[in-house]
């Protein structure tokens, strides 16, 4: 190919984030998890595929625009519900009580047997424990809270379970990953597996990992959830897309998350 290898490679770089309470080194590339061994030797966070200035924004919380959303999430965490007077803080104390959770989601909930994403856990408390109407899957409130809770797991290795009760959901997500949707007949794998590292017009294709979500997207000047990103990627194949929070996209999130087992949760990443 005329453009050569320079375009095909993820950038060699290391992500050390300066946070309020010190520095955190994130694992942004590692050995592929066992179930992907036939496909990739190495997995990479989407961070390695972005331009220098975009990568730099994630090195310091002071520069990361996503932190403002997490701050707003903290206000919501502490606020008393008008409906019931309850607050997240009232039952869970500080948000650090959520440490580790983001790294193991989506997971099959032991009590209900349902596949749950973080949005589901939040809405479960919002509706049954705070007496409010469910928050929209991609509403501002939801994204603020996803940001805050994900940040508590920053640096923890993604470690979603794919066996036991998760196996059937994982298999469904895997099938979707290789399905060529829409009038363009493109599967996730066409872009993020077979062509990762290549340029699709001006976009450098990453492996489509979700360890960085929610992400602050410069193009939208706002937060984007993994569910939202899937909706967009499927829509871009000229397909009838799925809804954020649908059973299909939850299964897909489990499968895609499992392709990143071993990468650090980035809390709130920055992408272009």
């Amino acid at each position: 190919l005329s453009l050569g290898a320079a375009f095909a490679d993820p950038v060699e770089d290391e992500l050390v984030v300066t946070a309020e309470d010190g520095e955190i080194t994130l694992v942004t590339t590692t050995k592929a998890p066992g179930h992907l061994a036939e496909t990739f030797d190495t997995i990479w966070s989407g961070w390695h595929f972005r331009e220098d200035d975009t990568r730099d924004l994630q090195r310091d919380d002071f520069d990361n625009p996503g932190m403002l959303f997490a701050d707003r999430g903290l206000d919501r965490w502490n606020a008393k519900s008008e409906a019931s007077g309850a607050s997240c803080a009232g039952c869970h104390e500080g948000p650090e009580s959520m440490k580790g959770l983001r790294a193991v989601l989506p997971r099959v909930d032991a009590k209900t047997g349902k596949l749950m994403i973080l949005e589901d856990y939040i809405n479960d408390c919002v509706t049954t424990r705070m007496g409010e109407e469910a928050w929209g899957m991609t509403s501002g409130k939801m994204k603020d809270m996803l940001g805050l809770i994900s940040l508590q797991s920053r640096g923890e290795p993604v470690n979603v379970a794919i066996d036991g009760p998760a196996a059937e959901f994982w298999a469904k997500g895997r099938e979707m990953y290789y399905t060529r949707y829409g009038q363009l007949e493109m599967a996730c794998a066409n872009c993020h597996e077979q062509n990762a590292g290549m340029m699709i017009r001006a976009d450098h294709l990453s492996q489509g990992q979700v360890n960085g979500f929610p992400t602050y997207r410069l193009k939208d000047a706002g937060m984007v959830t993994a569910q939202q990103r899937f909706v967009g990627c499927i829509r871009d194949t000229r397909a009838e897309t799925f809804k954020a929070g649908s059973d299909e996209l939850k299964a897909l999130e489990l499968y895609v998350a499992s392709r990143g087992n071993g990468l650090s949760v980035e809390g709130i990443s920055v992408r272009h």
Partner: peptide, 21 residues
């Protein structure tokens, strides 16, 4: 990977251009 540019049927979840519908 190259899309078919003159084909009208046989798609999985065909959408109305880029609307997602």
């Amino acid at each position: 990977f190259m899309p078919a540019f003159y084909k009208s049927a046989g798609y999985i979840r065909p959408g109305d251009t880029y609307t997602g519908k």
